[in-house]
């Protein structure tokens, strides 16, 4: 069986003309044209360019939704196994179109895809998480070196072969970390790297430091006596039996628990399921992590008006920052909608 590939190119590479024809609407042709002809040869007998979808760069850029939908319809008509776009080098509009059609082929048609762009092409920043992008030089003089790399990677993708690290396979990474077994142990790599650093030689870190988002704190509560206050914790305090099956580590959800009418957390009604700290004391008295008892006393004394009826909790150990961020945004939104004035967050 030969795998079927649809190739996406712009009006220029289809031989329709340059800037003067950049407004042409999507169209398709059987087989390969332009750079697709060499691509088809490089794919060998295993895969074949069965059709080419063409769209003017300006049309795609100015009517993205329509252009995308029409191109997808034309792609689908060939019943392909994969979509390849470009190479777009450093052409801004073309690069964005290549990235967008590849991303859409994945999202909407479930097809694997690949394009090839210069690393500064705006299409890279926009779509590198959604498709494989082979890195090229900035202009069409790189066509001869780009096409073999594209064909090689396309075959690997289409055969569903295990994919190595981006740097080795020659594509721009998709923003994901995956484990591989190196030739040397971590200890050996560390000592080598340290010696390079000391000698002032170039060295390659294995993880660039992330830049943390700065969260601006909310303004202080104006009148505590009129405030409704919520409590929220990443300390893993849940109703006994963990009804939501929140994981002991790497939580992918949080719980919202009714604490109205509860004055004290005890081993009978709540427990800690957190996998990252010595739970002995939190199991004896869950209030040490989620301080319902003290908050009730302060509520009774009138220090603040009301303890919000629900507490939100999860386990904050090994939890992906992406999940934690989502929890925070969802919980924050709900608290705000419920008219809560302030929240006490406890961590462990």
């Amino acid at each position: 069986m030969t795998f079927k590939v649809v190739h996406y190119i712009n009006q220029f590479y289809a031989g329709m003309g340059g800037e003067d024809t950049a407004h042409v609407k999507p169209s398709s042709q059987e087989g390969a044209i332009g750079p697709g002809m060499q691509l088809d040869q490089l794919l060998g007998e295993e895969a074949s360019v069965v059709g080419t979808v063409i769209c003017g760069d300006s049309y795609y850029g100015e009517h993205m939704d329509e252009a995308r939908a029409e191109c997808l319809r034309l792609i689908e008509a060939f019943e392909p196994d994969m979509v390849i776009a470009g190479p777009g080098f450093n052409a801004g509009r073309y690069g964005v179109a290549c990235g967008d059609i590849c991303a859409a082929a994945g999202d909407e048609l479930g097809l694997p895809s690949l394009t090839a762009l210069y690393h500064e092409n705006p299409g890279v920043e926009m779509y590198h998480k959604k498709t494989f992008i082979v890195e090229t030089v900035d202009s069409a003089r790189g066509m001869r070196s780009a096409l073999p790399k594209m064909a090689e990677l396309a075959l690997k993708i289409i055969r569903k072969e295990p994919m190595g690290p981006a740097a080795e396979e020659g594509y721009i990474h998709r923003g994901m970390r995956r484990g591989f077994f190196h030739e040397r142990t971590g200890a050996e790599r560390a000592v080598d790297m340290l010696l390079q650093k000391i000698k002032g030689e170039p060295f390659q870190t294995e993880l660039e430091m992330p830049v943390f988002k700065k969260i601006t704190p909310a303004p202080p509560v104006v009148d505590l006596k009129k405030a409704t206050i919520a409590i929220c914790s990443s300390g893993g305090i849940v109703p006994k039996g963990n009804p939501d099956h929140i994981r002991v580590s790497s939580a992918e959800k949080y719980g919202k628990y009714d604490i109205s009418g509860i004055n004290d957390l005890t081993p009978d009604n709540f427990e800690s399921i957190h996998g990252g700290y010595d739970r002995v004391y939190a199991l004896e008295d869950p209030d040490v992590v989620l301080p319902v008892d003290v908050m009730r006393e302060l509520e009774k004394e009138g220090v603040f008006k009301k303890l919000y009826d629900f507490a939100y909790t999860t386990t904050g150990t090994g939890t992906a920052v992406a999940n934690a961020e989502r929890f925070g945004q969802e919980i924050g939104r709900e608290l705000k909608e419920a008219g809560v004035d302030a929240v006490i967050l406890t961590a462990t």
Binding site: P165, H173, R177, R178, F180, E183, T185, G186, E188, R189
Partner: peptide, 15 residues
Amino acid sequence: STNELGFSKLGCEWV
């Protein structure tokens, strides 16, 4: 599995 003394050869890379 992810021992941080660098006991094994495992390490993350970008994909």
